[in-house]
Design a protein around this nucleic acid. Structure first.
Length: 461
RNA sequence: UCCCGAGUAGCGCAGCGGUAGCGCAGGUGACUGUUAAUCACUUGGUCGUAGGUUCGAAUCCUACCUCGGGAGCCA
């Protein structure tokens, strides 16, 4: 039985065999101890009563402190004291593994997230991280449910890619070369033909282009996997390795894309509110007392939708003093996005139709020739949580945009084939999983919502 | 990468030119159907690293390292 079940009032009267870790132990001279047992199945631990008539009470139970792992067999009874409905009257307690209280890094007291990052192998045992990672799991389940229930096909796109540029950021090189002896061409360049794949390869920065190939065959698809960016970003919302969800939908325009993104986020938030109530209540109390209210508000209202041009007009007319002045054509700064989401509208905002010059080559050109059918979903505090677009489905325009972006269309022959043979309007977006978890949980640093964060100068564990 | 800020006991912090302190954790004892239990006593630190200024540096200066916050890049 898991602790979660042992806590239910209807479990009273049942016999239980529980496994878990000791959170705290309180001894009573009256001849028994309270053991707070947690197994990660839920936020709370179950209170175990260990009486001194247990054969190993003196020499084992009184020595098992915080962090020790135990197996407990006992009867679930109604608790006579406040604080819990049930407790376990132990009949047998086996110590599976001691944790020396003098050196065990976790304490009963709250510990800084900064320090917990340095013991990332133990931090899942804390209340906060347990809650965060149960919620992260619920979000992942919700993501799959959302797409599967609408007959999207889950496609696994490659992690190693030979596209030398997918339009997004610095990439990690993948090679089997000995770095102190890299084969060179006579011209002095690197001879990638001798490398493992016979060409230069990198870790993927996005599965989108590959997902498009499946969308133009299976209609509705999504990817969900790790993504890598070698940017030297040192912020609370960037990682070098993160997880991204990328739906791609054929026969869909930007409006359909926005509708999908909005119902997608609402579904995730609703599922978390419904299925992680205890964990959310805990985080709402300890981390950020606005998260539950914010999520409920979002689920019940419509996202604000406006064009980039309208947003620029609003920002100019706002009278706010921005560090970066606003004018049509600039990329919006964090301060501008925050004004829109946190001050002006106080809810998620979808911005569309950005200037072509600041967006990726694959986004569909509007008839005005100046803007593209892009959309960014912005949320308070986090900023961009989803970035998407309707894709350029016109062969000539796409080739033109590639050249404009300094890309060689020949290297993307397979991508262009999708427009050459039976092209269709299609659209999609990318959701940064960790940013979503951050937004939902209120955790301020993205490194605290992924089990083992990878960031510049940081790849421990 | 840029701009700030911080590195002092296992953890959280104070001290900011004159012989290193508090809370929590750990240890010992008392007390108790307890809830981050409580109370008393107690162990524990070449003050991030390397230089420099000074009679004297945790404290002032320089460089470096690491961490945090903000910015850029983005998800």
């Amino acid at each position: 039985m898991r602790v979660k079940e042992a806590l239910l009032p209807e479990s009273v009267g049942k016999k239980a065999r529980l496994f878990g870790w000791v959170r705290t132990r309180r001894d009573s001279k009256a001849g028994f101890s309270f053991i707070d047992l947690n197994d990660g199945s839920c936020l709370k631990g179950v209170q175990v009563i260990a009486e001194k008539n247990l054969s190993n009470y003196e020499d084992e139970i009184l020595k098992c402190g915080i962090g020790s792992s135990v197996e407990i067999v006992g009867q679930i009874v109604a608790s006579p004291a406040k604080g819990q409905a049930t407790e376990v009257k132990a009949e047998e307690i086996k110590i599976l593994g001691y944790a020396d209280p003098a050196t065990y890094p976790l304490q009963k007291k709250e510990t800084s997230f900064e320090y917990l990052r340095s013991i990332a192998h133990l931090r899942p045992r804390t209340m906060t991280f347990g809650a965060v990672f149960r919620i992260r799991n619920e979000i992942c389940r919700s993501i799959h449910n959302f797409f599967q229930s609408q007959n999207f096909i889950y496609v696994q796109t490659p992690i190693v890619t030979a596209s030398d540029c997918e339009g997004a950021g610095q990439m990690f090189r993948v090679t089997t070369f000995e770095l102190d002896n890299v084969p060179k061409l006579e011209s002095g360049g690197i001879d990638f033909e001798q490398d493992f794949f016979g060409k230069a390869t990198n870790l993927t920065v996005s599965g989108q282009l590959e997902a498009e190939t499946f969308a133009t065959a299976l209609s509705n698809v999504y990817t969900f996997g790790p993504t890598f960016r070698a940017e030297n970003s040192n912020t609370t919302r960037h990682l070098a390795e993160f997880w991204m969800v990328e739906p791609e939908v054929a026969f869909c325009d930007l409006e359909g894309d926005m509708d999908l993104a909005e119902s997608f986020l609402k579904t995730i938030f609703r599922d978390v509110l419904n299925n992680c109530a205890d964990d959310m209540a805990f985080l709402n109390e300890k981390i950020d007392n606005t998260i539950i209210g914010t999520l409920k508000g979002i689920v019940e209202s419509d996202f604000e939708r406006l064009t980039y041009t309208e947003a620029v007009d609003i920002l100019i007319a706002s009278g706010e003093k921005f560090d970066f002045p606003v004018s049509w054509g600039i990329d919006l700064q964090t301060e501008h996005e925050r004004y829109l989401t946190e001050k002006k509208f106080r809810k998620p905002v979808i911005l569309t139709d950005y200037p072509r010059g600041i967006k990726a080559f694959y986004m569909k050109l509007n008839p005005d020739g100046k803007t593209v059918r892009a959309m960014d979903v912005l949320v308070p505090k986090i900023g961009e949580i989803i970035g998407g677009s309707q894709r350029e489905d016109n062969l000539e325009l796409l080739e033109e945009r590639m050249k404009e972006s300094g890309l060689n269309p020949e290297e993307y022959w397979w991508y262009l084939d999708l427009r050459r043979y039976g092209t269709v309007p299609h659209a999609g977006f990318g959701l940064g999983l960790e940013r979503c978890v951050q937004f939902v949980t209120g955790m301020s640093n993205i490194r605290d919502v992924i089990p083992f964060p990878r960031a510049p100068k940081s790849a421990d564990f």
